[in-house]
């Protein structure tokens, strides 16, 4: 009953996912429910303040279908732990499910572990068929893009801190030589 409602809702909202649903239906039932569950009740939807120094914003697009995904992480500067994750995905059902699943997966991880998450992990968990593998790649790349953005911010901050103490910087540089 609940399943039928979910499938109908997904059908009206994301036509492009017919192949994905058919594939998932033929696979293990638990995975099928997982995709629908994440699609119908996506976790961690929203935004974090992108100018916050501890927030990394990942942005990726799928050139073939025009889907876009924004994934943001709030990182503990001292430990590198991902304390908060938010995403917004404008695209098909499996892109939404992939990013929703990815946010749950990386919450509590360190940024460095999160950057190692592979699209195949996501695809396997959600049992995505081959035609929808690029959706999980989108999620993987969004995580990496968010981590890169956070690292770039941190590097800029450290460079600024170095520039604030100009006497120390040349000394370190010459010591290295």
């Amino acid at each position: 009953m609940l399943m039928a409602t979910a499938a109908r809702a997904a059908g009206t909202r994301a036509v492009a996912c017919a192949a994905q649903r058919a594939g998932a239906a033929a696979a293990v039932r638990a995975y099928h429910e997982k995709v629908l569950d994440h699609y119908n009740k996506p976790r961690n939807v929203g935004s974090l303040p992108k100018n916050d120094p501890n927030v990394g914003t990942g942005l990726v697009g799928a050139p073939a279908c025009g889907d876009v995904m924004k994934l943001q992480i709030l990182v503990d500067d001292a430990t590198g732990e991902i304390k908060e994750v938010k995403f917004k995905t404008f695209g098909c059902g499996s892109a939404i499910a992939s990013s929703s699943f990815a946010t749950e997966k990386i919450k509590g991880m360190t940024v460095w572990d999160a950057a190692k998450v592979k699209n195949t992990d996501i695809a396997k968990e959600l049992s995505l068929p081959p035609v929808k593998l690029h959706c999980s790649m989108l999620a993987e790349d969004a995580i990496k893009s968010a981590v890169r953005d956070w690292e770039a911010k941190r590097a800029a901050r450290q460079a600024a801190a170095g520039a604030a103490a100009p006497a120390a910087a040349p000394a370190t540089a010459s010591a290295a030589n």
């Binding site: 990726v60 799928a62 050139p63 073939a64 876009v68 917004k88 790349d141």
Partner: peptide, 20 residues
């Protein structure tokens, strides 16, 4: 057109997400 994701043109993606 490549199937794989692209973060190449961040300005374009930023604009798209903001508009959406």
């Amino acid at each position: 057109v490549p199937e794989t994701p692209s973060a190449a043109d961040r300005d374009v993606l930023l604009h798209v997400v903001q508009a959406l």
